[in-house]
Design a protein around this nucleic acid. Structure first.
Lengths: 347, 347
DNA sequence: TTGAAAGCGCTAACAT
DNA sequence: ATGTTAGCGCTTTCAA
C-alpha cells in the first residue's frame, strides 16, 4: 500500500536486480527468464510501484496523452457522449484525455492548444458539437490531428462526421413506409453542412420514391423548440396540411409537438413526427416518445481516437480519411399511419 | 514559426548565453539585468520556444495537471457546464484537465485513477453529476482531492455542493409571492441528498410562512418526465387540486406540463409550475418557458478547482471546507397568480 | 552577472 | 542473463 514515491530503483533494490531488469520485466522488453520476470512483477505490485509517466514520456518522446479541443461543450447536451466515446477509446489504448474548451474564441483556443502542445500531447481531436466547416489552427499541422463533427478544406486532416443525408433518408423512408405521402420538413435556417445535407437528403429521398418535392411543405426556422413551433404551425395551418413532419433536430420536433397541441392535433394519430439527434432528455421525455434518428456522438468520439491511434502507430494506410458514420433510427411512439379523411385526404 | 523541437538549449545558443540564463529569463528566477532578460525572451519568442512540461514537471515534481473524475458524463446534459467551469478555472492557473470517466464501475474507476496518478496529476476533482453521498476511493487519500456535487463521511475531503434546501425555498417562496397557497410538490423517489434536502426545504418554507404542509399534495415518482406526468396527474385529479406545482427537477416539470395538457389545464393561467436545474434545453424549450431554479454547475466546477489551488499552494486555511453554493431563480413564463374560482377556491 | 553540472524517473543501447 | 550508463528537457544549487 506504500504509494509514496516508489520508483523503479526501489523495486530493483527490493528484488535484488538492476533497474534494467525491472524495466524489462514490466514492459516486456529484453529477454529474461520467465521466473525473474514474474518475481519482479510480483515485487513491484507488492510495493505498489506505478511508473512515472512524466519520466517515461520524457524519455520516449511520447506522453500517452491526447488533447481534446472542443467548442461549446457546456451548451450542448450531447457533448458528454462525444467525450465519453473518446475517453473510453483513449483508455483502451492507455491514453489519457486532456480536455480543453474554446468557446469559439480564437485567441483562447490558440492559447489552450499551446498548453496542450507544451504538455506534449501525442495527438489532438479537434471537435465541434455541430457538424460544420472549420479552419484548423495552423499549429495543428505539426501534430496528428483528427476532426470530429467537422470538416476542413485542408486535406491533411482526417475527419469523422455523421452521414447527414443518410440520416434524413432514414427518417423520411420510415415515414414513407408508414404510408405518408405529404411529409413536411422543418428545416434549419443556418448555413452549415448539417442543414444542407439533411435538406438534400429529404428532397432526394422523396424523389427517389417517385414523390414530388413540394417546396411549400418545407418550413425554415432556427433549430430550437420555438423555431420548430413556428415553422410547424405555418405548415399545419395550410389547407392541405402534411400528415407527417420530419424535423431538423429533436428540439424542433419538440416545437412541432407544441404546434400540434395548439392546432388541436394529436401525435401520432393526427400527425406523425420524426426528429434527428436522439437527445434522450428530449426524445425520451416528450409524450408520446419521439421517434428520431440518432446522431453517432459516442461513436464519433471513439472513432476519432481510433483514427488517431492508427495515425500515430502507423497502419492508417487503408483507413478512409474522411468517415461518414451511420445514423440509426430509434423508434419510440410518434409515428403512425396517416389519418384517413374522406377520399383518403387529410383535411 | 519553427516549432519542431526547439529546446531551451537552442534558445541559449541563439542568444549566446547559457541555459541557466534562459531559464531564469523566462521564469523570472535569478537576478539578471533587465536587458538580458528581455533579449532572451524575445529570442525565445522568435524561435517559437515552448517549454516541455513533461521535463519541467519531472524536475519540479509538479505536472500542472489536474484529474477530473466523473460518473455518467454522457447521460447528463449539464456535465458540460461542470467540466467547462473546471476547465476555465484550471486554465487560469495554467493547469490542464485530464478527464476520466467511470460509469459507476468501481473497477474501471480505480484503473482510471491509477492512470491519473501515474501521470502525476497535482490534484483531483472527484465529481458526481447528481448530488449524492460517495465513498471516495482510498488512493485519493494521498493527493489533494475535492468532491464536486458529492459528500463523503471521510472529512479529509473538501466538497462543494448546491444549496438544495435553499433552492427549494427559493422556488416555493416565489410561488408564495405570486399568491399561491396550495403548492404541490413532485418529489423524487430516490434516497439521495438532493431528494431529501429539497423535500425538507419545501416543507420548512411552507411552515415558516405559516402554511400547513398537506402531505396529500406531495407526490413521489422517478425524476423523469414520465414520473412527473404521473405524479402531477395524481395531484391534479384531486378535488382540491393545487394551483401550483414545485418539481424536483426540470424533467419532472416537463411531465407536469404534459399532465396539465391532459387535464385541460393551461400553464400558467390554470397552473403554475417551477422546476429545478435550469436545463436550458428543457426549460427554454417548454411552452411557455419554465421558471426554474438553476443548479450552479459551472460554479461548482470553478470552485472545485479554486479550492484545489488553495490546497496545493497553501492558504486554504480559512476557506470553508464544505461549501454550499447558492441556486438562483431563473424566471421564464410558467408562473402566474392562482386562478380565481368562486370564493377564491380553485375547483 | 553568468555558467557548469547534478538530478527528476525512466528506457535502451551497449557492456559484461 | 543481467548490469552500467547516457540522456530525454528542464530547474536550481553552487562555483566562478
Amino acid at each position: 500500500m506504500r504509494n509514496i514515491r516508489v520508483g523503479i530503483k526501489d523495486v530493483a533494490a527490493a528484488a535484488g536486480v538492476s533497474v534494467t531488469t525491472v524495466s524489462h520485466s514490466l514492459s516486456g522488453g529484453g529477454v529474461l527468464p520467465e521466473a525473474t520476470r514474474k518475481r519482479v512483477q510480483l515485487i513491484a505490485r507488492e510495493l505498489g510501484y506505478a511508473p512515472n509517466r512524466l519520466a517515461s514520456g520524457l524519455r520516449n518522446q511520447r506522453s500517452q496523452t491526447i488533447g481534446f479541443v472542443s467548442d461549446e461543450i457546456a451548451t450542448t447536451p450531447f457533448a458528454g457522449a462525444v467525450v465519453l466515446g473518446a475517453q473510453e477509446a483513449a483508455a483502451a489504448h492507455d491514453w489519457v484525455l486532456m480536455v480543453v474548451n474554446s468557446n469559439l474564441d480564437v485567441d483562447l483556443e490558440s492559447r489552450e492548444i499551446r498548453a496542450l502542445l507544451q504538455h506534449q500531447v501525442d495527438g489532438i481531436v479537434y471537435a465541434r458539437m455541430y457538424h460544420q466547416k472549420v479552419v484548423v489552427p495552423p499549429t495543428l499541422g505539426s501534430i496528428p490531428t483528427v476532426l470530429l463533427d467537422a470538416e476542413s478544406d485542408d486535406d491533411r486532416f482526417t475527419s469523422v462526421v455523421p452521414d447527414e443525408a443518410g440520416a434524413a433518408a432514414t427518417a423520411v423512408e420510415y415515414l414513407l413506409r408508414a404510408g405518408h405521402t405529404r411529409i413536411g420538413y422543418l428545416a434549419n435556417q443556418d448555413d452549415i453542412p448539417a442543414a444542407i445535407s439533411r435538406l438534400t437528403g429529404y428532397r432526394d429521398t422523396l424523389r427517389s420514391h417517385g414523390l414530388p418535392v413540394d417546396e411549400a411543405l418545407i418550413s425554415t426556422a432556427s433549430p430550437s423548440a420555438a423555431g420548430g413551433r413556428t415553422a410547424a404551425s405555418a405548415l399545419l395551418s395550410r389547407a392541405e396540411r402534411p400528415t407527417a413532419l420530419f424535423c431538423f433536430n429533436d428540439q424542433m420536433a419538440m416545437g412541432a409537438y407544441q404546434a400540434a397541441g395548439l392546432a388541436g392535433l394529436s401525435v401520432p394519430v393526427d400527425l406523425s413526427i420524426v426528429g434527428i439527434d436522439n437527445l434522450e432528455i428530449i426524445a425520451g421525455s416528450l409524450f408520446p416518445g419521439l421517434t428520431t434518428v440518432a446522431l453517432p456522438h459516442y461513436e464519433m468520439g471513439r472513432w476519432a481516437i481510433e483514427r488517431l491511434h492508427a495515425e500515430i502507430h502507423g497502419g492508417a494506410a487503408n483507413d478512409p480519411r474522411h468517415l461518414k458514420l451511420h445514423c440509426p433510427l430509434v423508434e419510440r411512439s410518434s409515428v403512425a399511419p396517416p389519418p384517413i379523411t374522406r377520399a383518403g385526404q387529410p383535411h
